[in-house]
């Protein structure tokens, strides 16, 4: 049976040419992502120092209360570190990442128009819509956090209920293959659903609900193109996901400090590369579709 040729949405490959063109002309577009990545690295570094004075005065009580005293000791602290960093990333993403994303979107728009990119002016412009951006980013994080947990929770419940197989396949297939693939697709779709919302806020000046609805409408109009544009950079994150899924094994084989290194690699690839590429590419699509340029 001949394989069907994969249909790529028209203009998808051309978008990447535009991305390269815009970013090489104006590398300042990457500065907001560099800032948020640097912030994440600092926070990761500080979290790694949680068991030690003086940070243990602040971090110690909540860690002991929520997870137990054992997690203030080596090597158990490194089992907790990914979870602590996950919550820290949510906080940083909502309160700082929303601003840096907005700034990057404005910078892309100015670069596309051939106008000078002044990050100070852009910052002031984005700050005026700070509250809206925080709410939108919060919704995205909550949606991702809740929705992405559901399939794995349902499957675990099913197999814990005593069922040996689902659709003639055992739990190993579902847990090691199906769930990661499903999580990847869900991440792509959820990111795509909200990706045009922030451009509507910062570039078109729309309010919260109109921006949300217009962003979703634009996504539904451009599903294949958006999904491709979001999925391709996210493929770069798969090796990081695989490292994170085996973090315990890697820590045991080498040293628990490897956990910090893997999280650091996640910042470099996730924030600096994947997020930057998705934001720039989808902003260019937005500009093209809404005739912003």
């Amino acid at each position: 049976m001949a394989l069907r040729k994969l249909k790529i949405a028209p203009g998808t490959l051309a978008i990447w040419k535009s991305v390269i063109s815009v970013t090489t002309r104006k590398p300042a577009i990457f500065l907001p992502f560099c800032f948020i990545a640097a912030l994440e690295v600092v926070v990761l570094f500080l979290l790694c120092q949680s068991p030690h004075a003086p940070l243990n005065i602040i971090m110690g009580p909540p860690i002991r209360r929520i997870w137990g005293q054992v997690y203030m000791h080596y090597p158990f602290f490194y089992e907790l570190l990914p979870r602590l960093f996950y919550y820290a990333k949510i906080f940083l993403g909502i309160f700082f990442g929303s601003v840096t994303t907005g700034m990057a979107i404005c910078a892309v728009s100015l670069a596309r128009k051939g106008e000078p990119v002044d990050l100070k002016d852009i910052f002031r412009q984005v700050l005026r819509r700070y509250l809206t951006l925080i709410v939108l980013t919060s919704i995205l994080y909550v949606a991702v956090h809740i929705l992405m947990k559901q399939p794995s929770q349902l499957l675990f419940k099913y197999f814990r209920g005593g069922h040996a197989k689902l659709l003639f396949l055992g739990p190993k297939f579902w847990v090691t293959f199906f769930i990661p693939v499903l999580n990847f697709l869900l991440a792509v779709v959820l990111q795509g659903l909200f990706v045009y919302t922030i451009p509507y806020v910062v570039l078109k000046g729309k309010k919260f609900i109109p921006a949300l609805l217009l962003g979703m409408r634009l996504f539904l109009k451009l599903i294949p193109k958006t999904v491709f544009v979001v999925a391709i950079p996210m493929i770069l994150y798969i090796p990081v996901t695989m490292l994170r899924n085996n973090i315990g094994l890697l820590a045991d084989k080498s040293s628990p400090e490897t956990v910090g290194l893997i999280l650091f690699i996640g910042i470099l690839i996730g924030t600096l590369i994947v997020d930057a590429l998705i934001t720039v590419a989808t902003t260019l699509i937005f500009i093209e579709e809404t005739h912003e340029a």
Binding site: H52, A53, P54, L55, H73, Y74
Partner: peptide, 17 residues
Amino acid sequence: ATGCESRAFKAERRMWK
């Protein structure tokens, strides 16, 4: 803000190794 690693933590690391 990071301070110094506590003696106990260092000892726990050595024990682990």
